[in-house]
């Protein structure tokens, strides 16, 4: 599974994203934390001259701060698989004396190692900054442990899932696009279904406490959400507030399941890959019908949701407007896919 040559090959393919990951994490975590500490120190030493009593220490951290890192994870997966398909480099990799299973697993191990190392190193630096700067007067590093427990498994799951998408997508572009769509699919598709039901007079009660578990589930199935939604806030003014919000830890089973399934099915599909379809939207001819149906349905639902209000307002919704827009969306998607599915995006021959 681990072979020095495959690691070197992956290093060459993925190095732009790997560098990006380390630099982005450094900038958005320790560098940003140090900046916050410096600003806080400056404010403490130079409180407001007209109303010094209004000065108080506060600190805020959100998982959304590292959203760029999430894009880079998907980019890394696309460089490791999709870029080879686009640049004819699979001809080199697949002609080498390695099992396809080992090639795929080496890519996974390579990505997971760098993602985990990048996160651990930078979060450790953040902890040191929290401990040895003015930030220690406001908070301790516990919230970073909480964040670490969320961000590492979800980041690995995002990478694994994007790598799996690379085994069905035929090019760099299609891998990036399909990864983006399917990573947001659970929440996005739910919104489309809810909108569809509401247009048909079935109201959805969104505010009940009983739906919290369902909401956590949907958010966790939408892998980037639990990272972006992580919030930590501390305010040491008179009404001292410390607030941390993240998904329940039991939901960590979801990224674990994503990772295991992505690796298992990814290995299987990579072994059976159809390199003759490299450059196309999809690698496998089987399943194109199902894929086309799914895309048309989603486009129709999206257009219906967006354009449904044309002939009515929020209170009196027009089914005519909904179905007219949905039909336009569906037809557009059909013709777009008809072109895209046979388009070959390969360069460098």
């Amino acid at each position: 599974m681990f072979h020095k040559a495959l690691w070197m090959r992956n290093q060459k393919l993925g190095s732009p994203a790997v560098w990006g990951i380390y630099i982005a994490l450094f900038l958005f975590l320790p560098y940003s934390f140090f900046g916050k500490a410096q600003s806080m120190l400056t404010e403490k030493n130079n409180p407001y001259t007209d109303a010094p009593e209004n000065y108080y220490l506060n600190f805020h951290f959100s998982g959304a701060d590292i959203v760029f890192f999430l894009f880079l994870i998907v980019g890394l997966a696309a460089l490791l698989v999709g870029s080879e398909r686009t640049a004819h480099a699979t001809d080199l990799t697949f002609s080498l004396p390695f099992k396809r299973k080992d090639i795929f697993l080496s890519k996974w191990i390579f990505g997971v190692s760098h993602i985990t190392t990048g996160l651990l190193l930078n979060l450790l630096l953040c902890m040191l900054i929290v401990k040895f700067t003015i930030l220690s007067e406001v908070t301790d590093a516990t919230f970073l442990f909480d964040f670490m427990i969320i961000v590492i498994p979800f980041s690995i799951a995002i990478f694994s899932f994007s790598l799996f998408i690379g085994t069905i997508a035929g090019s760099l572009i299609s891998q990036l696009v399909l990864s983006g769509i399917f990573l947001l699919f659970p929440l996005g598709f739910l919104s489309l279904i809810v909108s569809f039901l509401e247009y048909h007079g079935i109201s959805i009660n969104r505010g009940v406490h009983a739906t919290q578990v369902f909401s956590d589930l949907i958010n966790s199935f939408t892998l980037p959400i639990p990272i972006i939604d992580f919030q930590y806030y501390v305010d040491l003014s008179e009404n001292s507030i410390t607030d941390i919000s993240h998904i329940p830890y039991v939901m960590l089973l979801i990224p674990l399941a994503y990772t295991i399934l992505s690796v298992v099915f990814g290995t299987l599909l990579f072994h059976r890959t159809k390199n003759e379809n490299n450059g196309r939207l999809l690698v496998f001819e089987k399943g194109r019908g199902f894929f086309t149906f799914g895309v048309i349905l989603c486009f129709a639902l999206t257009f219906g949701m967006l354009g449904g209000g044309i002939f009515g307002d929020y209170d009196s919704r027009s089914l005519i407007g909904y179905y007219l827009s949905a039909t336009i969306g569906g037809v557009l998607a059909f013709f777009m896919l008809k072109k895209l599915i046979h388009l070959r995006m390969q360069f460098g021959k």
């Binding site: 040559a5 070197m8 090959r9 060459k12 640049a87 004819h88 480099a89 001809d91 080199l92 002609s95 080498l96 004396p97 390695f98 099992k99 396809r100 460098g348 021959k349």
Partner: peptide
Amino acid sequence: DPLVKQKITYVPDSTEMLKSYSVKEIVKL
């Protein structure tokens, strides 16, 4: 059993796949 390809090499008609490498890197690889 692809490991048997230790004794087989394939030179494709496309020469672009190794273009980002230097000679030293290729030798190492």
